[in-house]
Design a protein around this nucleic acid. Structure first.
Length: 187
DNA sequence: CAAGAGATCATCT
DNA sequence: GATGATCTCTTGA
């Protein structure tokens, strides 16, 4: 069980998005420890990608994506859903991976009792942040146990044939970038 | 089943 | 003042 560091995220966004599948996301909130297997991701890569928030340039909200890889980018969408992203690529290249779905989510409480979430409760980007209690206090933080949110490689290898790709969701306005197969998922 | 509407607010123009 | 990297519920065939 090995904790992913900035080195893992400081690569091509599409590779990171694909390699995150099957990795284990952890979030510690008070006495509660959440863990879940990442099952769906999307790549948002560069200022030319009209679906990427950075296509409109550097703003207070998006500056974290222009920074070093391995940081957390969280923003509110539709007034009610937090989106969890991991910053990729070197300094000054804006890019991030959106975590769109997790599976086998488990909450371990202080007394070691466990609550298991049904997969259909965590199979959307807004749903998983709600269930795993991931909020904007983590925005702009380093992905690390120090900040209570981190990702582990549990050694399980996902065969290439089990990785599906498709168009990204909810970005019909992005012209020619709309049809890029930059969404990755398993099962 | 597919399609549509409503909820709700930080962010940028 | 408009607009989403969404989700759930309702409607209608």
């Amino acid at each position: 069980m090995h904790i992913l560091t900035s080195e893992f995220f400081n690569r091509d966004t599409h590779e990171v998005a694909k390699d995150l599948l099957g990795k284990v996301l952890y979030h510690r909130k008070g006495e509660n420890l959440y863990r879940a297997v990442i099952s769906e991701t999307e790549a948002y890569h560069g200022t030319e990608d009209l679906a990427c928030h950075c296509s409109k340039g550097k703003t207070p909200r998006t500056e974290i994506m222009f920074g070093e890889a391995g940081y957390i980018y969280i923003y509110l969408i539709y007034g009610m859903y937090q989106m969890l992203n991991f910053v990729t690529m070197p300094m000054d290249f804006p890019a991030a991976v959106l975590i769109r779905g997790v599976k086998d989510a488990v909450l371990t409480k202080e007394n070691n009792s466990e609550i298991i979430f049904q997969n259909n409760q965590t199979n959307g980007p807004g749903k998983l942040t709600q269930k795993l209690q991931i909020g904007k206090e983590l925005n702009k933080k380093l992905i690390s146990p120090v900040n209570n949110l981190w990702v582990c490689d549990n050694g399980i290898y996902i065969p290439e044939k089990d990785i599906h790709t498709g168009k990204r969701i909810g970005i019909d306005y992005a012209k020619e970038w709309r049809d890029k197969a930059w969404r990755f998922y398993i099962d």
